[in-house]
């Protein structure tokens, strides 16, 4: 078996664009996922039913249905409906749908990581902070979250890598990511191995970089004495 790499070179712009798009999807997913996750996580631990229940429903909905279905539904049903029937505008690109689907989905998983991380901090820490006169927000920001964040990093790292790989699902709505580039190149050139190996290597490069970043952050957020 010989692999013809010339098609990959021939379609290199396609792959480069895919590479960039996959990174964009991952970064947007992580960014908005963290934001949505933090809000939902805080809603869940608030102890107030009117915050807790909607957050719980959201999390169950997005964790309990396949991401592939979410991507399809958001692109072909939810966004067109909102744009055409409510806002009366042309729906934005498939890439936008991809951003929305990945962020909403990541938010559900990340909220569970936030909730778990915050709940893992001993109750006494909050009491100590409050007894010093800090309000709830100050105690969260200065005492609880910095400690919780350190414990959240390993599961967050896993989530980021999962998000990167799951971003390949947007291929089904024809977003030109890495997987789409490989699939389309292979289909139109009848060259089977080269495009898929190239795609795999691209994903591996990003995953390895991502896991190094998370590893570095974990070290960075550990106090000096524990680094020895």
């Amino acid at each position: 078996m010989s692999i013809d790499w010339s098609v990959v070179i021939e379609y290199k712009d396609f792959f480069i664009r895919g590479f960039i798009t996959t990174i964009e999807l991952t970064i947007v997913g992580i960014g908005f996922g963290l934001l949505i996750g933090l809000i939902l996580g805080l809603m869940q631990i608030s102890g107030k039913a009117y915050l807790k229940i909607p957050a719980r429903i959201y999390v169950d909905l997005f964790r309990g249905t396949p991401l592939l279905l979410q991507v399809l539904a958001i692109h072909f049903a939810v966004i067109p409906t909102i744009c055409e029937e409510i806002l009366q505008i042309t729906p934005p690109s498939a890439l936008f749908s991809g951003f929305v689907a990945l962020s909403l989905n990541a938010g559900a998983y990340i909220s569970e990581i936030f909730r778990g991380g915050i709940e893992s901090i001993e109750k006494g820490q909050m009491e100590a902070a409050r007894s010093l006169g800090m309000n709830y927000a100050q105690a969260m920001r200065l005492v609880i979250l910095p400690q919780a964040f350190k414990r959240m990093l390993p599961p967050l790292g896993n989530e980021f890598i999962a998000l990167l790989k799951d971003s390949s699902l947007v291929t089904v709505i024809a977003v030109n990511d890495i997987t789409y580039a490989a699939f389309t190149t292979a289909k139109s050139t009848f060259e089977r191995m080269g495009p898929y190996i190239t795609a795999a290597v691209m994903y591996l490069i990003i995953t390895l970089i991502l896991s190094r970043v998370v590893f570095y952050l974990e070290k960075h957020f550990t106090p000096q004495t524990r680094k020895k």
């Binding site: 009491e127 100590a128 007894s131 010093l132 800090m134 005492v143």
Partner: peptide
């Protein structure tokens, strides 16, 4: 919060911020 600034508390488990 205002009242608590006038009331110091020491806990059995110390509860220093690690």
């Amino acid at each position: 919060n205002q009242v608590r600034t006038n009331v110091g508390m020491v806990f059995q488990q110390f509860e220093l911020f690690p």
